[in-house]
Amino acid sequence: MWGSDLVAKRPEFFQVVKSPFDGTEVVCVKALVPDYAIIHVQEADIYGNCRILGPSYQDALMARAAKKTIVTTERIVGTYRMKEEPKLTAVPHFLVEAVVELPGGAKPGICYPEYQAVEWPKHKAYQKAVKEGQVPQYADSMLEGRL
C-alpha cells in the first residue's frame, strides 16, 4: 500500500503501525467479514464442495472471508468428481451452508462454458427496467419456475 493515496484517504480502512517484531512501519488493512459469500459455480455436490471452471475471480477468497457461503450451481454432481481431482475443489463443503441447483443462475450474464455470451435482449430489458422502476416485473420474468 506504500505510495497509494488510499492510506491517507481511507483511515477507517488503512492505518500505519509499527511492527511488533522489528519496529518498522507497516500498513494494516481492516478486514471486512461478510455474513455470507454468494457465488455461482458450474459444479457442486450436495454437501457444498464446489468446482469453478475458468476464471475464479475472488470467489474462493470470498468464501474463506465470509462466515458462511451460499452456492448456486449449474448442476449437482456426484462427490466422486471431487474425489477424482481434489485439487480442483475451489470451495470445500465446510464453508458452505446452502446449495441451490440453478441452471442459468448467472443469466443474462455469462457462465463459461455453459453459456458464453450475454443474452442481450434480457440485459437490455434489465437496463430498461432499472430506468423505468420496473425491476419487480423484470424479476418475475426471470424467476418464473425457479423459486
Partner: peptide
C-alpha cells in the same frame, strides 16, 4: 461472486 457479467449470481 463473479465479475461484471461473468458468473455472477444474478438469479439469486
Amino acid at each position: 461472486g463473479g465479475n461484471g457479467m461473468h458468473r455472477t449470481p444474478s438469479i439469486f
